[in-house]
Every structure is written in C-alpha cells, then in structure tokens.
Simulated scan of single mutants.
Amino acid sequence: MNNFKLENIINQKLNSQTIQDFVPNGLQVEGKEEVNNIILGVTACQKLLNYALEKNADAIIVHHGFFWKKESPVIHNMKRQRLKTILCNDINLYAWHLPLDIHPSLGNNITLANILNIKPISPNFSFPFFLGNFEKPIIGEVLRSKLTQILNRNVLYYHGDHALDSIKTIALCSGSGQQFIEQAVKLGIDAFISGELSEPTIHIVREMNIHFYVAGHHATERGGIQSLGDWLNKKFNLNTHFIDIENPA
C-alpha cells in the first residue's frame, strides 16, 4: 500500500482531522513509498525503532510519536539518533495520539472498557473519557485485582472514606487522563480509572468519595495501537506486528 494512502485511510478511520491535539497525527516522517510490513508500539523509543529495523519494517505506527508542542526543535543526542535510524533506513513513522485514545471502537478507552465488560451509558463519545456501567456492581478491591491481572502490573487503588462499597458507574481515561476526574465526578461516577497519579487527585478522590485506580500510562495505552494493527491486518491484509516495550510508568 502507498504510504500516503495508508495515512489517509487511518486518518479517516480515526476522524483525526476533527480532533485538536498537541502533536501532529498521521505520517510524521516519510519513508519508502510502498508499505506492507508494519511494526506497532506505544512509543517511538529507540528500542522499538531498532526492532523495526531488524524486522525490515516499511513503517512504524505508534501512539506516542515525535514533534510535541513546546518541545525543543533542536535535533541533538537522543532525538538525533532516533531520526537518523528512521531516515537512514527509509522507514515511515506514523503516530496517532488523541484520536487513538477516544475512538469509539479502536481507542484505548473503549478497548479497556470492553475487557472489563463496562457498557457505555450512551453512544455519545463527546467526553474525552469513557463513561459506562458495570452490569452488576463490583467491589472496589475486586476491580483492583481484575485490573492487575488484565494489565499485568501493580495497580494503585485509593478511595474516599465514605465511598460506596460497590461500584456501578465508572469513568476511565487512558494515559494522563486523571485531569478529567472532576468533570467525570459531576456526572455521578462511583469510580475513575486512569494511567497516572498527580498530587491533587488524591485529595479530590478523598473529598468526592469515589474509588480511583492508577493503572499505568503505558499499560492503559497498549490496547488502542493493538486494535489499530488488527484492523489494518484484517481490512487490508497488511503484515502488522505489535511490540510491547516494557515500561513501568
């Protein structure tokens, strides 16, 4: 498949042109014209780039790519080596950030919600986070154990002193989505799942009496890129292979 055609297909699928982001979504570094062999990963780190090179990949697709807003434009050291690996070997680098977090069928949020059997409250995906219900209420510690098993990592768990014993309504937002917790609380949630923890969040959890799970930025953002790779394989018969570069954050 032509490298620019691949970009257009994924842009259309993820509706990325309608989403404001702080990173360019799509083809970030142009490589060879024809793409068949694709390596996918969460972040375009050097270890992933080296693996793609070993596997003779035509393209790399990631959730966290390059050229973030407010990032220094100077090409030194680590950034130089990463770009050198891609450019000198004619590999295409694609990245989709927020479009891959919130997509209603392939996104990080919906992927995790489906694994946990959380049903959306409505088909309205206008929120930056997923909002849904468990079919049957679940005990807070049981959900922590379930997340730990599913994501294969130690999940931190906090709750307010007067939080409900069981959880019915829940919001989740992958990565650094804890910034949306107050917005979600206004919608009547019992619990919130995110990837990261910030100091003010614990006070919000305590004072708003909800359950809160810190499941890892990397761990909560593996699902979307894997779903995208599976979709490309099934829909267009492209050779896609997801590589999980372990990250405890």
Rank of each mutant, 00 (worst) to 15 (best):
D101Q: 02
I102P: 05
S105H: 02
G107N: 03
N108C: 07
N109Q: 07
N109L: 02
T111A: 09
L112D: 05
A113S: 00
N114C: 00
N117G: 10
I118K: 00
I118D: 02
P120D: 04
I121S: 09
N124D: 14
N124V: 05
N124E: 07
N124Y: 02
F125A: 10
F125W: 14
F127E: 15
P128E: 15
F130L: 00
F130C: 01
L131V: 01
N133R: 12
N133Y: 10
F134H: 05
F134M: 04
E135M: 01
I138W: 12
E141I: 08
E141P: 04
E141S: 09
V142N: 11
V142S: 14
R144L: 05
K146N: 09
L147K: 05
Q149W: 00
L151F: 13
N152P: 04
N152V: 02
N154I: 03
N154Y: 13
N154R: 10
V155H: 10
V155F: 11
Y157R: 10
H159V: 00
H159R: 14
H162T: 12
D165Q: 10
I167C: 08
K168D: 10
K168E: 06
T169K: 15
L172D: 01
C173S: 14
G177Q: 09
Q178H: 14
Q178Y: 14
Q179H: 15
